[in-house]
């Protein structure tokens, strides 16, 4: 496999994980515009553990995911008090607070960034990406996913039939933060250099964009979105300079004609039947 395709595939895998982190939180009805913050936390923790503490990458990623997950839970509790755009604004603020913290974090380079990580293979990135994707898809067939759908739809009614909305919403924040941290750790070891600017508002927007375009009601939508965001500019070379504008326009068009995004349950069922016929 050429370097070129390996690079593209790695980008897709990392974006897929980042998008899944948004998807998991969105499934409970909470839109986060700050997941780049969790990515940044994961990237810096993983890099410190491999470079300074000499741990193997897999161990480092697991530790980073756990720490970030705990931070996600800590963010999730106050987030319960906020809904809709207020939650979006608060998470946007969280992302900026993390980026700003990293800028001041002199021990790991501050604005100069941090390096020394060993490059990881595309296969390694995709092992993580596929594992997490499959895990999320399995959970989508589980009882807890029904609870998640119930909480997203009508939190009060869900509580009155015995569902613990707090546990579900905070848990989703924790899981989303953990997955974002894995994406961040892989990002750091793919690019072997990180700086606070890698985890800015624009990164958070990319993650949300992938989910909204690919499909916000099924996990495979994150995959479709990640593929679209990375591949389309490669094939539409004439768009090179205008690809962001194209994505912005695509986002608006998608919201206008197909709010749930490219993939949804009905389309997947249709495709599944078609493939068996």
């Amino acid at each position: 496999m050429s370097m070129y395709y390996a690079g593209i595939l790695s980008d897709i895998g990392i974006l897929l994980l980042g998008a899944l982190s948004v998807y998991i939180i969105l499934a409970t009805g909470q839109l986060s515009l700050g997941n780049a913050g969790f990515m940044g936390i994961g990237a810096y923790i993983t890099s410190w553990l491999t470079v300074e503490a000499g741990l193997p990458i897999t161990v480092a990623l697991v530790i980073a995911a756990l720490v970030s997950g705990a931070i996600g839970v800590a963010v999730g509790f106050p987030a319960l008090r906020l809904k809709g755009i207020y939650l979006a604004m608060a998470t946007l603020g969280f992302g900026e607070v993390v980026r700003s913290f990293l800028l001041n974090f002199a021990a790991m380079g501050g604005p100069e960034g941090f390096h020394g990580m060993h490059h990881i293979s595309t296969g390694y990135i995709w092992t993580w990406a596929v594992s997490v994707l499959v895990l999320v898809m399995l959970i989508e067939a589980s009882p807890i996913w029904l609870e998640i759908r119930a909480v997203r739809d009508d939190e009060t009614a869900a509580g009155l039939v015995g569902l613990n909305a707090t546990e579900i919403k905070v848990g989703a924040f924790g899981c989303g933060a953990a997955v974002a941290a894995i994406a961040g750790g892989l990002f750091a070891h793919h690019h072997v250099y990180i700086e606070p600017g890698n985890f800015s508002f624009e990164r958070s927007v990319d993650l949300v964009l992938a989910v909204i375009l690919g499909g916000s009601t099924v996990a495979s939508g994150a995959l479709a979105g990640a593929v679209m965001l990375v591949i389309l500019p490669e094939y539409l070379r004439f768009l090179a300079e205008w690809r962001f504008a194209a994505f912005g326009a695509l986002l608006i068009a998608m919201l206008l004609v197909r709010r749930q995004g490219l993939l949804d349950r009905a389309l997947l069922r249709f495709a599944w039947r078609g493939s068996r016929a």
Binding site: S142, P143, E147, R149, A150, D153, L163
Partner: peptide, 30 residues
Amino acid sequence: RLFSDMTVWEHLLVAQPHSGLAVRRLLPMR
């Protein structure tokens, strides 16, 4: 107050408490 997009069948599953290990809530229903 029914849940939107849920089938009748799903309504009968969602309100039931889960016995046994918490992990079982994460395993596919079937």
